[in-house]
Design a protein around this nucleic acid. Structure first.
Length: 896
RNA sequence: GGGCGGUUAGCUCAGCUGGUUAGAGCACCUCGUUUACACCGAGGGGGUCGGGGGUUCGAGUCCCUCACCGCCCACCA
């Protein structure tokens, strides 16, 4: 970029060229890194952002996240708050392995062929290629992240935090190792959490199978049996009982007897358990404790055997006899066929059921009995729940608090171990005597904590942590916890945690639990949950549907500002939005509009060296008042995290007030012959002032284009605050509102609009100048017309403008406006169309008057409604009566 | 099986604790090359606020109920 300040702008805004250059200037100025020391007394504003997965490319969800957070951080930076927005990426163990495994497959390798050590080396190489990708993409979005604090969940600081956090959980008795049924993905070959086990409605089969009853000698009775219903015949080999409902008289005589398992001849006790639904299937259930969560509980209650018959690939084990080695689905078919051949298959019917599939690979999840590491989360969940209930952490939108509470109340222990390689290895060591030592030392323990055996005899756990364990430490691990670092003291706890509602449980809940446990305080005071960006028809975007929008393509096309505006306009906490081309085009049009407005202001600068003089015109007072109102409103909306509201406020002020009305009125002032050079200088100065503050308001919303305009503007209209870059400039100060100016201009705008309407209705040529007669309804209105007559003349193309006196006759086509009666004087204006339009307007006014009279005549209303409301209605009535009266005794206006 | 959200103009959505004539953008119609902008300007048409009941002086807004759409949670094999 040139170092010469330019004072004009090129005709076209070239976002693709301008945006990267501006981002570089921000970086050069070190604009995103907090000062070494905070200003004393400055408020703190720190955002916790979800670190994107290291392997992923940026999608619209990331873009929305970045835009929301960047908008907030830019606002607070301008407010002078001590801000931090820290960037980072997540190592995403299972997702990363899934991606790398695919790459390896293409190279003819696999996890198995490489072995753990080489696999991890390969993974780090892969990381080095992809780790910076997300960062690069965030820079193109304009995200003002503090790159000097870039973090990775696999870096050493994070690793240390993981060890220390886990050691503390262990010491507190909240981490334990035990045998339990867990969700197992046979394809990823790891345990997964309940959250990663995605339920799908699917149609399967329900088979009814005969289990023959055992005779006294233990042989099956060919003529007596109990029929059980099952969706999983292949797990038959793990059966260790049959259950019926205790009150089911059909089976009352069978409880306590035994059935014989087909193929294996195992004796199965028939037990009574209230868990069984009598109406479902046959009312009798085969119990397979090792392969079903319900059966596990039933089995425990009745002391049944737990027999695993599936291995880690979901193949049948030797316990399945002749079926050993078969895949679970092949075995299902085979078992059914054999039962049929034996005459023990009573039936098969289609069955609607819910199947759990691995979030990552879609494979049907298998309940599997194994020894695992768990975190006892109940006490942690209670604390997190309490802080939400007591308002120390607030969730937006508020109704998610209920969702959060429901989940927290029903939470199960967290299986944190993963049988994967890429991730933080669980810092637990086993000694030959079976003792467990958990250590937070980087090199592991010196000796067994229980028996003192030396480290050399200990072996470390090979399982790694669920990715979300390290993500759960993110708000403080990134600041150096457990060290008492200056950053931790300065930026923790954080302010706003912003993410999509879809990871409320995965991430937010875990951060709250681990944050409270590790640091004793809530890691953030506000949880802001945004929704999903959908396609124009409301479908979720997905690669398979082919309806994804690539944010980088959009940026290349129309610029990051345009996309930001489009996304923020549609965002509301907790609700999804549809992204359409029309919205993106709207964003582009808005950036272009701002660019062009700035071009006009810069180009309209009068001769230098002339001192501004005279008092501000009505238009100037009005736009300053509007600016004050917009500033106040936008500020309150940003403080309330109402980003769509903020965007709408600034958009409306910029486009409607500033461009459509103020600039048009300013042109009148600037171009009138009667305006002196000093007055011209004053009007331009006001215009540049307001534009400057508008840019400040605009900056969090359109950071690039506002910054691009800021430099040339401040070169010719320095604001005296010495702010070379808008990104670090101050948020506008609240000005004074000017009720009188607003009232007058509102009235004038109404008059102008109505005159234009009359012109259109009567078919007057657009460029024609017509005389205009105005009969003000009162002295106030008369004053407004006097103050703004040249605006009316120019903007309504009405010249000369003549003020009518009370006694003047009103022609039939006279109409009413907020300022009183008016009529156009010309042959054409006397047309029937104008008269018709005018009388239609009058009819409207009269209708409203009638409504108001009725309302005010109702004693109930006058007595019971608040006085303010009644007063407002009275005032309105007076105003309308004034308008009508201004029409005098014109033909159409004299009857009530 | 529980719970939650939505239903407002042709489309996408605003409408805070009930209070003027329910708004915006896009789309549509008419006009317009006035020296920032046609990625624009001016004007216009278009809604019994999902249905039904209730509370109230007054309901898009509060209560009840029904319908449809969507989401989350859940151990009937």
């Amino acid at each position: 970029m040139s170092t010469e300040p330019r004072s004009s702008l090129p005709p076209r805004y070239d976002a693709a060229a301008v945006e990267p250059a501006i981002y570089q200037r921000w970086l050069d100025a070190n604009a995103f890194t907090p000062a070494a020391k905070p200003h004393t007394g400055a408020a703190r504003f720190v955002i916790t952002q979800p670190p994107p997965n290291v392997t992923g490319a940026l999608h619209l969800g990331h873009a929305l996240t970045a835009f929301v957070e960047d908008t907030l951080i830019r606002y607070h930076r301008m407010r002078g708050d001590d801000t931090l927005w820290l960037p980072g990426v997540d190592h995403a163990s299972i997702a990363a392995q899934f991606v790398l495994d695919r790459i390896l497959a293409e190279e003819g390798e696999s996890r198995g062929s490489l072995g753990r050590e080489r696999y991890l080396k390969r993974m780090w190489r892969f990381m080095d290629q992809t780790r910076d990708l997300i960062g690069e993409q965030h820079r193109r979005l304009g995200a003002s992240l503090d790159w000097s604090r870039l973090r990775f969940t696999m870096d050493e600081v994070s690793a240390r935090a993981v060890r220390v956090a886990f050691k503390r959980l262990w010491d507190a008795g909240l981490a334990y190792r035990g045998e339990a049924l867990v969700n197992w993905c046979p394809r990823c070959r790891t345990t997964i959490s309940d959250l990663e086990n995605i339920k799908h409605e699917e149609t399967g089969s329900l088979w009814t199978i005969r289990y023959h009853l055992a005779r006294a000698d233990g042989t099956p009775d060919p003529d007596a049996w109990i029929s059980v219903a099952t969706t999983r015949p292949e797990t038959i080999f793990g059966d260790s009982g049959v259950a019926v409902h205790p009150d089911d008289e059909r089976y009352a005589g069978l409880v306590g007897r035994e059935a014989i398992l087909p193929f294996l001849g195992r004796r199965l006790p028939i037990v009574a358990d209230p868990h069984v639904e009598r109406e479902f299937g046959t009312g009798a259930v085969k119990i397979t404790p090792a392969h079903d969560f319900d059966d596990y509980e039933v089995g425990r209650r009745h002391g049944l055997q737990i027999i695993s018959v599936l291995d880690e690939d979901a193949r049948l084990t030797d316990a399945a006899g002749e079926f050993a080695g078969m895949d679970r689905y092949d075995a299902r078919t085979a078992v059914v066929e054999r039962l049929q051949a034996m005459g023990d298959l009573e039936g098969e019917q289609p069955h609607q059921m819910v199947i759990g599939r691995c979030e990552r690979c879609g494979t049907v999840v298998e309940p599997r009995l194994s020894v695992q590491w768990f975190v006892r989360v109940k006490p942690l969940a209670d604390q997190a729940l309490t802080s939400v209930r007591e308002g120390r952490t607030r969730i937006l939108p508020a109704h998610f608090e209920k969702v959060f509470a429901h989940w927290m109340e029903n939470i199960h222990d967290w299986a944190v171990g993963r049988q994967l390689w890429w991730g933080h290895r669980i810092p637990a060591w086993y000694c030959p005597d079976g003792h467990i030592t958990v250590s937070d030392a980087a090199d592991g323990p010196d000796a067994c904590a229980e028996c003192g055996r030396p480290a050399a005899e200990l072996t470390q756990e090979t399982d790694i942590f669920d990715t979300w364990f390290s993500s759960g430490l993110w708000p403080f691990s990134t600041l150096g916890w457990p060290e008492e670092t200056p950053d931790l003291a300065r930026f923790y706890p954080t302010s706003v945690m912003e993410t999509g509602y879809d990871i409320l449980f995965f991430w937010v809940a875990r951060m709250m639990m681990l944050g409270l446990f590790c640091t004793g305080v809530e890691p953030f005071h506000t949880v802001y949950l945004h929704g999903i960006v959908r396609d124009p028809t409301g479908q979720k975007m997905s690669k398979t549907k082919g309806n994804v929008v690539d944010p980088l393509a959009v940026i290349t096309d129309i610029g990051a500002d345009a996309m930001r505006f489009a996304l923020l306009m549609g965002t509301a906490p907790g609700s999804d939005q549809r992204l359409t081309d029309a919205k993106l085009t709207g964003g582009r049009n808005f950036t272009t509009k701002m660019w062009n407005a700035a071009r006009f202001v810069l180009g309209a600068r009068p001769t230098e060296g002339v001192h501004p003089e005279g008092s501000e015109s009505l238009a100037e007072r009005w736009i300053r008042s509007r600016l004050a109102a917009a500033t106040d409103r936008a500020t309150r909306q940003l403080d309330a995290l109402d980003l769509a509201g903020y965007a709408a406020t600034v958009h409306e002020f910029a486009w409607s007030d500033f461009c459509d009305w103020y600039l048009e009125m300013a042109k009148v002032e600037l171009r009138r012959d009667e305006t002196s050079p000093g007055e011209r200088a004053r009007v331009w100065r006001t215009t540049a002032d307001v534009l400057g503050d508008l840019l400040r308001l605009l900056h969090p919303l359109l950071p690039f284009v506002s910054e691009a305009i800021w430099e040339p503007l401040s070169a010719v209209a320095p604001r005296g605050r010495g702010e070379p870059l808008l990104v670090t400039a101050a948020w506008p100060e609240m000005g004074m509102q000017d009720a009188a100016a607003e009232r007058d201009v509102d009235a004038l705008r109404d008059l102008i609009s109505r005159v234009r309407d009359q012109r259109t209705a009567s078919g007057v040529a657009a460029g024609a100048w017509l005389p205009l007669h105005v009969a003000p309804a009162s002295d106030g209105e008369r004053g407004a017309v006097m103050a703004g007559r040249h605006y009316v003349e120019a903007l309504a193309r009405a010249r000369p403008l003549e003020l009518a006196e009370g006694g003047d006759a009103r022609p039939e086509e006279a109409a009413t406006s907020a300022i009183g009666a008016f009529w156009l004087g010309s042959d054409q204006a006397a047309s029937e169309a104008a008269a018709a339009r005018a009388s239609a307007r009058r009819a409207e006014v009269e209708q409203q008057l009638a409504r108001l009279r009725d309302l005010l005549a109702n004693p109930q209303f006058v007595e019971r409604a608040p006085e303010q409301v009644v007063e407002r209605e009275r005032a309105r009535l007076n105003e309308l009566q004034g308008q009508l009266a201004a029409l005098g005794t014109g033909d159409a206006a004299d009857e009530k």
